[in-house]
Every structure is written in C-alpha cells, then in structure tokens.
Design a protein around this nucleic acid. Structure first.
Lengths: 346, 346
DNA sequence: TTTGTGAATGAACACGTTTTCATTTTGTGA
DNA sequence: TCACAAAATGAAAACGTGTTCATTCACAAA
C-alpha cells in the first residue's frame, strides 16, 4: 500500500513478459534483436507487453552471453580541461547514438597510472577503450587489458611509437602539427617577431614534445633563432607565472607560442594585467587547440585549430570499425591542423 | 605465434584460477570477497595465482547474481560546461575510490529527455543515478527507473518540489541561494548601484528561477527597485548579445547580476570590448558559481560561490548512505552560499 | 574421551539473457 | 497434390559469478 512496499518490485524479466504475452522466453529475446526471425505481429505484441511491464533487457545478462558489454571505457586525467571535456561530450553523444554507453575512469593529474584502476576497469569488460592520457604507454594498456580489446591512444606521435611495439595492436589517431605551426610562424615572422618563446605543456605529454620539436624545426627552416623554452603543465596558473619569470628574470620575448589555449590565456593575462604590456602590440601570442573560450573577446586568441568534429568523426569511425571487425589490421587516421587568425598577433 | 593468434586468449575465469591453485571455484570467489571466511594462507595463494593469470572477477556476472552493478549513472546535458565538468570530475574521483564507476549519459542541450535514453540506461542497472538536469521531473525519472534505485536531483528548490510527489522517493541536495545573494546585493547597494539587471539562465532551470526569485525578494527587502530581467541560457554568446541589447535598445543598468559565471563573462566582454564601458566603474557585475575561470585576471569576477568540495562531499555521503541502507528515509542535505569579492564590483 | 562451537569447505543452485540445434510451420512452384 | 526451401519456433545449454546449505574440520572446554 505504501510506496516503500513495492520497493521489492524488481525489474520485469523476459520470463514475465513471455508469460504475459503467451510466448516463449526465446521469442522475447528475439523481439529485442532486430535481425532475428520472428513473425512481425508476434514481435509487435511482445514489444507492446514489454512496454506495459516496463521491461528492458538486462545488459549484464546480455553481456555475459554475447561477450559485448556495449560499454566504452574512457581514461581521463582531467574532465575539467576544456579540451578533454569537449572530446568526452562529443564522443559520448556519438557513441550513445550507436548504442554504446560511456564508462568514465579518472587517473591522477600527473598521469601516473594506478594499475589497480586498469584491473578494475577490465572487470567491466568494455568493448573498447579510449585513452586520453597520451603518455600511457600502449604496451602497458595492452598488458593489463585483453589483447582483443581495441585501444585508442589519442594524439600520439608517429615517430615516438614507431619502434615501441613491433606489431601495434591498437588503432591510432594522429595529428599533423606541422601545417598549423608553419602558418603561425609565417604570420609571426611577417609581423616582425624575432625572439619567440615556447610555453610548454606537461613534460610527459607526447603532443607537447611533438609541438616543441615541430616549432624548432620550422623556425630553423625559416632561418630564425631557436625558441626560448619555458616549462609548463597546460594550466593557467603555471603559464601565468612562467610568463612573469620570462620578463622579470629572463630577457622577455616578442612572441609567445603556447602549447595550449589555456596556457595562452595565462600568458596574455600576465602580460596585460601584471607586466603592463600590450598584446599584440608589445608581445604576440599564439595558442593551440582552439577551444570555445578562444573566441571570447577578452582573449580573442589566434590559435592552431584541431577541428573537433573531424577528431570525433575519425575516432568514432575507428571505434565502430574495430567493433564490427575485431580482426582487421590496426588502422591509423591522420588529421591536419590550421591556423585560426584572431587578434593576438597583429 | 603471431600477435593476432592469441586474440582469442579470453579473459581468465575463476575456474581456471581454481584449477591452477588446486582449490574449488568457490574459494576463488571468497578470496575476492574480503568478508568471506577463508584461510588466510589459502587466500594469499589464490590471489597470487590470480595475479599471474591476470584474472579479474567479471562485473557482469557478479552484477547478475548480486544485483549490484557498481555503476553510478550520471545524466548530463553539457559536459563542457565548467560547472558540470567540475562536478563530474570530483564525483567520479570520489566514487571511484569507493569502488563505483561512472556511467555517463548525455541529454539534449534543451533538457528535453529522450525516454528511450532512460530505458536504455535502466538496462545497465545502475546502483544509483545522479541527474544534473534540474528540470527533469523526479516523477518522470521514477517512472522509468525502478523505485528501488535512489535518485539524486541536484540543486532543486524546496518549494518547487514540495507538492510534486507526496512521498519523495529520492534524496536531494538543496542549495540556499539567499546568503550569497544578500551579500552581493548589500555590496552593490554600498557602491551606489540602483538599476540592477538580472541576466537569466535557462528558462526551464529551477536554479535560475530560484535565483531570480531570491534576488527580487532581497531587493524588495532593501527597498530597491525590482530588477530588469534579461532572458539567457547560461552561455557566453547569449549573455553577450543580451547585454548589448540592454544598453543599445534598452536603457542600460549600473549593475548586472548574472545567473552563472560564464554569462557574467559574456556581459563583461560586451561592456568592455563593444560598448566601451568600464567594469566596475561604469557597470558592476556579479556572477554565480565561482568556477575556476572566475579568478582569471581578465575577468577577476566577484561571484556567489557554491563550494565544490562541500557539494561533492554531500553528494557522495548521500549516495553511499543510500547504497548501504536502501530502505532509509529519503534524506535532504542543505548547502549554503557566500560571496567571493573580487574586482568587478568596486 | 566426549561435547560443543565456530570456522572452513564444496556441491548445487540461481541470476537473466543469447545461441545452438532440431523440429514444426509457412510459402512457392510444378 | 506433392515436393522442397525458407522462415518460425521452443527446449536446452551455455555465460561467470555469488550465495545457500549441509557437511567437515579444528580446537578448546568439560
């Protein structure tokens, strides 16, 4: 009589639906499996009864027998980072449309992987795993997870991993940094920048290493001096402090190339609000990522874009391909970058 | 011989571990269940073998028999919103430490709930559900999910839901808006603000409605004029445009109270970079939330804080309480707000 | 030695589904 | 009408675990 009384009202089971609809339990199973052969009218009747009883197939039971959990694990160091939250949001939406749910696991900010986390995650038997932390060695992941699980390491560098595992067991999404960086350097040079500082990201970040390397390479090609390299960690506060140090302790620079947009924001604010310098008149600033905040008027940041839609489409394509053909050869998708010109250069 | 060959190397099962360790399969199960009675040396040996075989209990199978999935569902409209991503991040960390994994579901930005999503989510049998979209009526959720599943609706308003369901079946986290708003209004009045505009959030948002109501109430108590109410949706762009309209089409204001920090950013940028006005000299701005970006120097926003740590601690406390005692009476935790004074008022 | 108490043990069952396989029904052409 | 393929059907067997229950074991007290 009381609300608390029907708490025991467990979820309806396929047996109950079968009994109610005067069919076998197998028929119920088939009714929820589109490509199973079942008389249309029978299917309709079953689905009708199922709706009345508020029945949904139990994923755990289904997973047990089919071996597919319809779960995609995501390993994320920082959900708050605009870059990662964008990706989580878009991937979740796309995968949800294909019938997969997102299983979120958080790793420590310093990227140190807790082995128990991987063990724990493996218990859920995810159909696929996306690792956002670029410095988790794929081999480590492969060791803890099953070899049959496709693994995606986002934005690693071809060269870094070329010799890591002889036969790479995971699909990869690579980003060509060269294009956007070359455009940015050309623009900076055009505005007369000579002393360029590179405001780095996390030391362990492969993307950071690749950006620094590409920047050096590009500057050399154009006959410009090597950049002043500042240590960073992708955060606003660290970038802010590093910029202060550059101008107070060091000799300054006439352009700052930040490893990510948030770092660029920190640099801009330090220049404008603490050092009393003008951006772009005194110092030019370029970022990396083109997160939504980059177009906010206070920053209006010129930045190297890696298109979100392209990224997500490529990732989803990879994942679905792998889920449908687990034995296919590992695939590599390549993305390009390009400069988005706004107001922080000239 | 080839990597591809051992793809079939399925995950180790409890049976294999049992055989290898010369024990019964039940013993293996007990070895992984801390409070089961098992001779210590035997347990150690089993765990040792399990480690060698890289064995992990299958969550699906475990879920099937225990009825607990160790999954916590989160229904989120926008992972990119700093407010929500903070919460997801902190909750995931806290729940992970307690052995629960986060299952992420995304709903449309306009909060319209797709009933099929709820049905789908129910299939995963989450032990608990956290709904970030405050305007999902709890009754709708209760209808689709089982009554036995504890449901948390974050930041709803006591008054709104008082009469919704006679016996509320869900635990709640309430936020007292009054404190922070009263402090903000006092500060604004002290600096001589007279014409105050309220830059609203999503129309369907209960938190927005409650903030607007509380602001009006507070202004009236202090004998000030009712606020000019601007429609918004919590986004930067909308806030930016609404502010332009207020000053170009409307009669302007000498203070803007935004429903959230991101909206305040939009207002500040419109004032400074398009209308040529000074913040705080010409117009004062107050935000709501105190997201990390609020202390960025470009904005340096005075805002009403709802402490993240307090929020997460309270939520985790509620969830764990409910998981351990499903039959306990529905609980309500209450949080307070307070003003963080920075540079956008005076 | 006997009795009693609690821990340790394993066989059997249960969880809710999909899949296999053998059987029955339906539909089609001669 | 017959023959044959194709579609529809249900019984039974999995999937990998936790739990119940009756039994055995170890040890201390009588």
């Amino acid at each position: 009589m009381n609300d608390r009384a029907d708490k025991k009202a467990a979820r309806a089971t396929a047996d109950q639906v079968a009994r109610e609809a005067n069919v076998s339990r197998v028929a119920v199973s088939r009714a929820f499996n589109p490509n199973a052969s079942l008389k249309p009218e029978k299917r309709d009747r079953i689905l009708q009864v199922a709706r009345e009883l508020n029945y949904t197939p139990d994923m755990a039971a289904r997973s047990l027998v089919t071996g597919r959990s319809h779960l995609v694990g995501m390993i994320v160091p920082d959900v708050c980072s605009p870059w990662e939250s964008q990706e989580i949001d878009a991937l979740t939406t796309a995968l949800q449309a294909e019938g997969f749910a997102t299983l979120l696991f958080k790793v420590k900010a310093d990227f140190s992987m807790d082995p128990r986390l991987l063990t724990y995650m493996r218990g859920f038997n995810p159909d696929s795993v996306i690792a956002f932390t670029e410095n988790i060695l794929p081999d480590v992941l492969c060791g803890f997870l099953d070899r049959a699980v496709p693994i995606y390491v986002i934005y690693d560098d071809v060269k870094q991993f070329a010799g890591a595992a002889s036969g790479t067991l995971y699909d990869r999404l690579l980003v060509r940094q060269k294009n956007g960086i070359a455009q940015a350097v050309a623009l900076l040079q055009g505005y007369g920048a000579r002393r360029i500082a590179y405001l780095g990201g996390k030391a362990q970040s492969l993307a950071n290493a690749e950006r620094e390397r590409t920047l050096k390479e590009t500057l050399a090609e154009r006959g410009m001096d090597a950049p002043i390299v500042l240590a960073g960690d992708y955060t606003y506060d660290t970038a802010y402090q590093a910029t202060l140090d550059l101008f107070r302790i060091g000799d300054g620079a006439d352009a700052i190339f930040a490893a990510n947009d948030v770092g660029a924001f920190g640099a801009i604010d330090a220049l404008r609000h603490e050092l009393g310098l003008s951006v772009p008149d005194d110092v030019k600033v370029v970022g990396f990522d083109d997160i939504p905040q980059a177009h906010w008027k206070s920053y209006n940041l010129t930045t190297v874009r890696i298109d979100l839609d392209e990224r997500v489409r490529a990732l989803v394509r990879l994942i679905l391909m792998r889920l449908r053909a687990p034995d296919a050869e590992p695939l590599t998708e390549t993305l390009n970058t390009r400069l988005i010109v706004r107001g922080t250069v000239g």
